[in-house]
Design a protein around this nucleic acid. Structure first.
Lengths: 357, 357
DNA sequence: TTGAAAGCGCTAACAT
DNA sequence: ATGTTAGCGCTTTCAA
């Protein structure tokens, strides 16, 4: 690559300021134990020369990299196109940037990449990893665990039958309260007087979909006649899937009077089919989504009641946890979040009432 | 961060193989000038110890980082949620991975971040940058240029009145043939016998939207009565925008018999409104999109005729250009693409005929 | 073809 | 409080 004009070194700054390299280093790294007038002279020199520390040299001695890998398993393009990731990445990026850490992006698709990623992480090029492993039975969590890198997972990982699961293995993840959010949504529908409350699930190979379904079932167990299995239709978090599922549902249970969709996009599809079928929302059928993606929920007709989760904050929290909250981290962070027994951090959800329910 | 168990060093490998560090280094870096039996012994030792080179130490002496920054200006969340970026990133990731380069992701929003990014790039932490600067008058390209880092832009950047523009400044960008693709689309509509051919534009603060509009105009200039300004409705690349624009269009020109939408999402919105208005596609109104996002184009009713561009390939090409094709790069790459006079590389587009036109 | 040795720029332990 | 110095792990002359 192009020969960058050689940047000024500590040496140069030291010379200009008339001090030793060590002193400059101290000032650059926070300036403890350097008397003010001297420190100021150093800062001047730094500014004058436009000095920027050489990360490689620093890493070599500190054995830290100030770099974090973000691993995104992306079997389908859809996964990434999801605004979800965009928001989470944004949160991560902000937090890392604020702490002068680099974000190294690792996209994977398929087995070969898994090995590659594992090797990379084990290679010790980054201080930690933030991993999005959405799918059940994904071998990635296990591989990464074996790599011995401090890791925070985005979303509750599925460990299947793997005995290394849970806190015992030092696993940390951040998720939103999928189950609680689902319960709140369904309870709200119950409070509205609805009884034939259906659920259009998300892709059930993802823990978030499973957890939301569980929440739905918990509440429905107490609703007379609520255990009707026909009220649950499997879908996949997409608008098209929502349409299909809603058609199936109307077919099976024309008497449905409420729908809890696994996410806003699914709700979007459901609304379309409901309108098509001549049903009024919320009069005939109440609809609730999940996520509160504003571009969706505020544009629907009628505006969508939904369960809000702060996705960007999830990302930020993942990064914060990795940087400060992990064993060996610089300090512990105070969390405003639940901490379930399995090593996760669960962010709260809020029911946002709009017109659809 | 956690104290990673200290990885084996060159020294260790050398000891195990019974050779000098220099020899190990040679083998690890390609193995030129090392006799085979020896080289094999070294490889054995590397494997046995699970040796992975320390990038920091290497960078310190080579002054290369094998790292590339991907800068994404993201004023709105939407920008990132676009499948477009996902695909381009994928292409970039693949190419960088294949050459053992790290992808350092830099997300920006707003002025403060610009300065930060410029500082980072100027700081010499990466060997080059891939920059997505979608919006006209974005100061980022200028700042980055000043940072003196080898850079490839994604999409034709707008240099406004900046005199540093173009090849003179060594600017390189990769784009698809927006103008040519638009021409092909409109010509196809003309060949179909359509005369009242409308264009729903993209967000006109992006060069891709401007170029597509230009292509449309070029062809329409030769169509009798084609210069009707009312046939052009400004939109914004979104389905909702497409709906709005289509309504406006039907209002202004009820006699429209063809629509060239700036992208597939816009076409999606347009199709919806056309159906609503009782018009048949393509009998009454033919519709063409742009991008060929399969999840969209294959699912519409009817399936969407569109202009395909290979987005992932654009990303891959950007990375390849940065790694091999830039002044000072390791070697020149052979391109199957046009190279316009202004320093860009333009990938071809193809008209994909489906049922909508 | 292989080895010995000199740093790359920085931090941290030790001296002062 | 400041300076001196010894490496961190690697590549790269230069000698053999």
């Amino acid at each position: 690559m192009t020969e960058a004009v050689s940047r000024p070194t500590l040496e140069a700054v030291a010379a200009l300021a008339g001090v030793s390299r060590a002193t400059v280093s101290r000032v650059v790294n926070g300036g403890d134990g350097v008397r003010e007038p001297l420190a100021e002279r150093v800062r001047q020199a730094v500014a004058e020369l436009g000095y920027v520390p050489n990360r490689a040299a620093r890493s070599l001695v500190t054995r830290r990299h100030d770099a974090v890998a973000v691993v995104i398993a992306e079997p389908e393009a859809r996964v990434f196109a999801d605004p979800f990731f965009a928001l989470q990445l944004r949160g991560i990026s902000k937090e890392l940037t604020a702490h002068d850490n680099q974000l190294v992006l690792l996209l994977t698709e398929g087995r070969d990449d898994h090995a590659r990623v594992a090797r990379y992480l084990a290679g010790g090029h980054v201080d930690g990893a933030l991993v999005f492993s959405l799918h059940l039975d994904d071998p990635l969590p296990g591989l990464i665990h074996d790599a011995g890198v401090p890791t925070v997972f985005g979303g509750r990982p599925d460990w299947g039958d793997d005995p290394r699961a849970g806190r015992s293995a030092g696993v940390v993840y951040v998720d939103c309260d999928n189950r609680g959010g689902a319960r709140a949504a369904v309870r709200h529908l119950v409070d509205l007087g609805r009884r034939r409350i259906a659920h259009l699930t998300g892709a059930l190979d993802q823990t978030s979909a499973v957890d939301r379904l569980d929440g739905y079932r918990e509440v429905m167990a107490d609703v007379p006649g609520g255990a009707d299995a026909r009220l649950v239709v499997e879908s996949d978090f997409t608008p098209a899937g929502g349409e299909r599922a809603m058609r199936t549902l109307l077919d099976r249970c024309p008497d449905v009077d409420a729908v809890f969709a696994a996410n806003d996009l699914t709700a979007l599809g459901a609304l379309r089919v409901l309108r098509e079928s001549g049903r009024r929302v919320p009069e005939d059928v109440a609809v609730i989504g999940f996520d509160d993606m504003l571009p969706v929920t505020e544009q629907t007709e009628p505006p969508l009641t939904t369960v809000r989760q702060d996705i960007e904050e999830m990302g930020r929290l993942m990064a914060r946890l990795l940087l400060h909250g992990l064993p060996g981290g610089r300090d512990r962070v105070a969390l405003r979040a639940d901490t379930p027994p399995d090593g996760g951090v669960i962010l709260p959800t809020t029911l946002i009432r709009r017109a659809s329910a």
